[in-house]
Each structure stands twice: as C-alpha cells, then as structure tokens.
Amino acid sequence: MAKVLYGATMSLDGFIAGPDGDMSWLKDHLGPDPVADDLVAHVGSVLVGGRSYRGDDPNVGTEKEGPFGGAWHGEQIVLTRTPAPDLPGVTFVSTLNTALHQARAAAGDQYVCIIGADVGRQCLDAGEVDEVLVFVAPVLLGDGVPLYRHLGGATTRLECTNVHTTPHATSLWYRVHR
C-alpha cells in the first residue's frame, strides 16, 4: 500500500518558492544528495498541484526538467480547478479524493510524492500524509510561498526519523502523528 509523502526543498526561513512562485533560487542549491537520490527509486507516482505543474521549473528546457530534476519518470496526477485533457503520464483531476485515489493506485507499494504547497496543505489537513521530507537549503529568501500555511492555525505533530546533511541542504524526514 502506498505511503503519501509531502516533500519539498525549502529556504531556511520556510519558503519553497520565491515571490510569484519563482523557483529559480533552487538552481544554486541542487546537487548530489543521497537522500534525494535514494528517494527517486521509491516514488511510484507524483501528486502535484496545478500551479506547481504549470509553474517555474528551475531546469526548464534542459534534460533535468521535471520531478526530481528529471531523474524520475512515472504517473503524475495533477490536482487543479482547471483540468485539461490528459497527456501521456499526466492525469488532471479536480477533487482531492479522486487525486489521492488515482495517485495511490499508480504508486502501488511505493510513495505518492506530493509537490506543491497548496496540495500539500490540503493533504495534511485531510489527514492523508504519512511522512514529510524537507530539504532545508542554506539560504534566506525573505518572501514567497511557505511550506505550510493554514489560515486560522492548525497543528500537525511530527516525529523526526532521519537527518542528513550535505553542502547543498539538510534533509529532515518526519513521520506524521495522527
């Protein structure tokens, strides 16, 4: 049975994208990372938000374009209010339950990896996230899209299960307590 993982690279001040969803800041913080490299082999599907799917890939136009810097290939389920015709390997859906069902089915016994702050928040709020993996990059962005924002507040308890440091980032792996 698939586990649902919310994974992202974040600045030390908590932003996964700069202002207006700008992802170009990541170029200076991507590099070899054994945690990320190992994770790619265990991701069975990606559940991505519409803005992230249509967003600013720092590797656009290169062989590294796409999830995990182009190292991963598989079924992408895009949760969006404006579905488009499906593409090879990409399915557009408009409800969270449908997106999770299809992503889990596509993942088999591997991870469903969430990409995008809003879909990550929705899945956390729905109690559907099993683990959170954050790569903290050594940079302060000062503004942008936060990893998790819940207006009115919400508390999600996490248990740290692994910490790994490279020159590019420190990875923090958590299990979600329900």
Rank of each mutant, 00 (worst) to 15 (best):
Thr9Tyr: 14
Gly142Ala: 01
Asp37Ile: 00
Leu141Thr: 03
Ala154Ile: 13
Leu147Gly: 04
Val136Asn: 01
Gln76Phe: 07
Arg175Tyr: 09
Leu30Asp: 00
Asp20His: 10
Val48Met: 14
Leu158Met: 05
Val4Phe: 15
Ala99Cys: 07
Tyr148Asp: 10
Leu12Met: 15
Ala107Phe: 01
Asn59Gly: 05
Gly55Cys: 03
Asn162Cys: 08
Gly66Lys: 02
Pro83Thr: 06
Ser52Pro: 07
Val176Pro: 05
Gly66Val: 12
Leu30Tyr: 06
Tyr6Ile: 00
Thr80Ile: 08
Phe135Asp: 11
Gly108Leu: 09
Asp86Asn: 12
Glu159Thr: 15
Glu128Thr: 02
Thr98Cys: 03
Arg104Trp: 00
Ile16Gln: 14
Gly66Gln: 05
Asp57Cys: 06
Leu133Glu: 08
His29Gln: 00
Trp72Glu: 12
Asp33Met: 04
Leu140Trp: 04
Gly21Gln: 12
Asn59Leu: 15
Leu147Asn: 07
Val163Ser: 00
Gly69Cys: 11
Thr166Phe: 05
Asn162Asp: 14
Glu159Tyr: 07
Gly55His: 13
Asp38Ala: 14
Gly21Phe: 04
Asp22Met: 06
Leu96Trp: 08
Ile114Thr: 03
Ala84Pro: 02
Asp33Leu: 03
Thr155Cys: 06
Thr156Lys: 03
Phe15Ala: 02
Asp109Thr: 11
Arg121Gln: 08
Ile115Ser: 06
Ala126Val: 04
Val35Gly: 08
Glu63Ala: 13
Val93Pro: 04
Ala8Glu: 12
Leu79Ser: 06
Cys113Gln: 12
Leu147Phe: 08
Trp173Arg: 15
Gly44Trp: 03
Val43Trp: 06
Leu140Asp: 01
Thr91His: 11
Tyr174Asp: 09
Leu39Ser: 13
Leu100Val: 15
Thr91Ile: 04
Leu39Lys: 12
Arg51Val: 09
Phe135Lys: 11
Lys64Val: 00
Gly49Val: 01
Ala103Gln: 03
Gly14Gln: 10
Arg51Cys: 00
Gly61Ala: 12
Ala154Asp: 08
Pro19Glu: 12
Arg175Phe: 02
Ala84Leu: 14
Glu75Met: 12
Val129Ser: 10
Ala105Ser: 11
Asp20Pro: 02
Gly18His: 07
Gly120Gln: 08
Asp57Glu: 04
Trp25Asp: 02
Thr166Pro: 08
Gln102Phe: 02
Pro67Arg: 13
Gly108Ser: 05
Ala105Val: 11
Thr9Glu: 14
Thr95Glu: 01
Thr80Phe: 04
